[in-house]
């Protein structure tokens, strides 16, 4: 577990030894997260990286209480939000939290919006819950929201339907809905994956501005280390359902303590010199249901030995501000 200074106020979000499994038939469980461990302070920012199938999206679903819709359950560990346990909340309790305290930006802006409703009617639904006010009040709120996410010509956009907007504009509408009730935590699952690079940089800048304005913490899921580097002071790396390294982004990138973190970093094209061979990770990411014994990364790891191949996935071992699940992290050479 990562150290949290006991003298200070409770962390905003604390995920402890979290285990999540898919329900497959009666009693048979297929683990998809085992285990996730990290802490996010109020107004902090944490980037969650990992390849597809590593459990990033399932972790987001856990944190917005929608696991059941995807046929999964929490079967170990606990989560606290603002000091309160939220591991076993029911749907009615989640409704008070989701949107109000925890905002969520999904991966695809098209999937997050109803294609046949106007932007106004979709955002009205979100603000109605909080204002409960008259038509004109709701309209004013919606207009205010669109202005807050810097949408040009907001009155025209209110009348539009999602397909009439560009991908970047749709993502702004999604963000408007996510921040409508001033959440303390914004969870963004690959918010810019489908967007062009210039639009991506606008959306990321917008998220940063809103964080500052509203004092929101950010949990950003991305497979792009450059994005995490720019947006998040902390980083958690997931591999095959486990957080394998957690700590300040800068440190994890400059001197990783887990071979997987190191490999993610050395296979980046933005850090490679033209002409150099990229250091790729041999083999393919292991999929859910096919995790090996021992450290799940050992079949692809350059420093693995027999000690790595037995038993369970090693726990995170904390050293000062950071933690690694590699039992041989002392053998990691400093990159560059």
């Amino acid at each position: 577990m990562i150290n949290h200074d006991p003298g200070s106020s409770p962390p905003l979000l604390s995920v402890n030894k979290l285990r999540v499994s898919f329900r497959v038939g009666s009693g048979i469980n297929l683990p998809v997260i085992d285990t996730a461990d990290f802490i996010l302070e109020p107004q902090g920012s944490l980037g969650l990286v990992g390849e597809s199938g590593s459990g990033k999206t399932m972790l987001c679903r856990t944190l917005i209480g929608t696991l059941a819709r995807h046929g999964a359950v929490i079967n170990g560990g606990n989560i606290t939000f603002s000091g309160q346990p939220i591991t076993n909340l029911g749907e009615s309790e989640w409704r008070k939290l989701r949107g109000h305290q925890i905002g969520y930006i999904p991966q695809s802006s098209m999937a997050g919006l109803n294609p046949i409703l106007t932007i106004k009617s979709q955002l009205s639904e979100v603000v109605k819950h909080s204002t409960g006010g008259s038509e004109s009040e709701v309209r004013r709120e919606v207009l205010g929201l669109l202005e807050r996410v810097r949408i040009p010509r907001p009155t025209a956009v209110m009348r539009s339907r999602p397909h009439q907007l560009s991908g970047g504009m749709r993502q702004r509408v999604i963000i408007a809905a996510a921040i409508a009730q001033g959440p303390k935590l914004l969870i963004a699952d690959e918010p810019t994956t489908a967007l062009d690079v210039t639009v991506q940089s606008e959306i990321l800048a917008l998220i940063n501005e809103l964080r500052e304005e509203l004092g929101m913490a950010l949990l950003l899921v991305s497979h792009d280390l450059a994005v995490i580097e720019e947006m998040c002071s902390l980083m958690a790396v997931m591999y095959a359902g486990a957080t394998v390294e957690v700590g300040p982004t800068e440190n994890l990138i400059s001197s990783p303590n887990h071979p997987y973190t190191r490999a993610l970093n050395t296979s980046r094209t933005d850090k490679a010199r033209p002409g150099d061979l990229l250091e790729s990770i041999p083999g393919d990411a292991v999929s859910v249901g096919h995790w090996p014994n021992g450290c799940r990364f050992w079949p692809r790891c350059p420093i693995a030995d027999l000690d790595c191949q037995d038993g369970l996935q090693p726990d995170l071992l904390a050293i000062e501000q950071r933690a690694s699940a590699c039992i041989h992290s002392d053998r990691m050479e400093v990159t560059d």
Partner: peptide, 20 residues
């Protein structure tokens, strides 16, 4: 080129040129 993440440009300065 300025929009490349990690290009360390001041992202807030980028003008909004995406249309509706």
């Amino acid at each position: 080129i300025q929009s490349i993440p990690g290009s360390k440009s001041d992202t807030t300065k980028i003008v909004d040129n995406s249309g509706v």
